[in-house]
Amino acid sequence: MLKFIASAWVLVGLVIGFVMPRAQDLKTTPIAFFHVPLAISMLLLFVLAAVWSIKWAFFGRDARDDARSLAFAEVGFVAGLIAMATGMLFARTNWGAYWSWDPQQVGVLGTLLTYAALFALRGATDDEGTKRKLWTVYAVLGVLVACFGSYVYRQILPPNASLHPNQTLTNSDALFKFALWFNVAGYAMLLICAANVRARFEIIANRLDERVWRGT
């Protein structure tokens, strides 16, 4: 059910994004209603991944929770890649370069590296229990890095060090803000649907693995 709502929501959001007046001094405004929601959804999905892994570790050790955590981290990673790619296109038209070592850009790159390392760690551990324990700890650390990298680090730099506008999310006019958060909700729902489907596959894979071990 959620997938129908999410898709319709995103469809409406897309149209809203295109009919919005040009925001501030940005060229190619509609991309902002895609790029920013994906970046925020990425963070949301990473937080959810950490929540599922904590649920695995401290509330019941249900392998399905671990599978969900993996799914959310994976989909969040893809969302981050898309946000970074669209951000680079956006940066090319507005700031004149695909990559300008903007603190926010580097922060997201660092976050993506963290999750790449997380997947590497999962691949490099043989024992299922150990694998999931290490995953939990590193997933929580990943959220820490995501917050520090993308929101805290730029606070210590001089105010104009980041090319990202500082308070678009909270200080724009109501219409712009509505369009932005409408799109955030839509993409977040759509990505959560995708993550749920991915989790179902992981759960099936786990059961098949179990069966191989039992030898039936």
Binding site: K3, S7, V10, L11, L14, V15, F18, P30, F34, L190, C193, A194, V197, R200
Partner: peptide, 21 residues
Amino acid sequence: FVLAVSVLTLGGVFFYLLRVE
């Protein structure tokens, strides 16, 4: 034109999601 392309992409994503589910 860009809007049309985005809507088509979204449609593709949606139907693929249905199929995978």
